[in-house]
Design a protein around this nucleic acid. Structure first.
Lengths: 128, 128
DNA sequence: AAAGTTTTCTACGAATTGTAGAAGAAGCAG
DNA sequence: CTGCTTCTTCTACAATTCGTAGAAAACTTT
């Protein structure tokens, strides 16, 4: 139960973008805007989703542990459980974790990182 | 079109384990063994798959670009396109790639790597 | 209590995956 | 070459996931 569908991803992007908790309605509106602004002629069309659709997706994301909801307030408010960066880093660990030879994987991985990123990594890893 | 199902993964594991190309029949046998040897009482049961099942899976893996087949020999022979390590590293890049703030993700990622792996990384990243 | 808003339940269609039979193609025994 | 055996391709079906949303239930507000 790892990867997200297209809409699920779109919703997460919104939640990650706005640090704040949002209601399903707000999200629906944001999604409408996004798809409206999305690209020239043949982009994939602008949807105007039903709120129930957004709610379903939010429930699924909650079940997957990516989203948390405040049930106290009346229009429930949803927010991402962890930041996009944390989540992505976690994902990377998941991918790596399933490998028997982690170090070999890391070697390959490092091999194809840009120089500037390599520099960042050196800094992060600190002097020996 | 990213992740693999359970059986697909099992097949890839076999192909990755044995550097050599294998036939569908061989793989079917190996799968049978594996599930046989797999865990005490309530593990998920030992299947004895039909060869067509294995062939279907192999075709799908081929379509996904993970497997290559020699069509010349009569029992076609299948092999992984890239090593497990390469594939995993690629996956990590895919995960990372979709992030707007790559460096932040890398920071988190590095933050939760074991010390020995950190050492390896330092070595790989080389001086200055 | 009526009307409006929000949430939950239920459902359906497309795509993916595990699973395999039926039928077609290719090679081997006579 | 003709039939038997083996291998591959085609087609199919059930379960799960995901996009999508109506119907109904629950809660607010007036």
């Amino acid at each position: 139960m790892a990867s997200l569908g297209e809409l699920e991803r779109a919703v997460m992007d919104l939640l990650w973008a706005s640090q704040e908790a949002a209601t399903a309605n707000t999200l629906r509106d944001l999604l409408a805007q996004d798809s409206e602004a999305e690209g020239g002629s043949a982009g994939h069309q602008g949807k105007d989703l039903a709120v129930t659709t957004v709610l379903t997706v939010l429930s699924r994301l909650e079940k997957k542990g990516l989203v948390e909801r405040e049930r106290g307030t009346r229009p429930h408010r949803y927010q991402a459980v962890s930041s996009r960066e944390d989540h992505t880093a976690e994902l990377m660990h998941e991918v790596l974790g399933s490998a028997p030879d982690r170090e070999a994987v890391l070697a390959r991985f490092i091999g194809s990182v840009s120089e500037s990123e390599a520099a960042t990594l050196r800094k992060l890893l600190g002097g020996h």
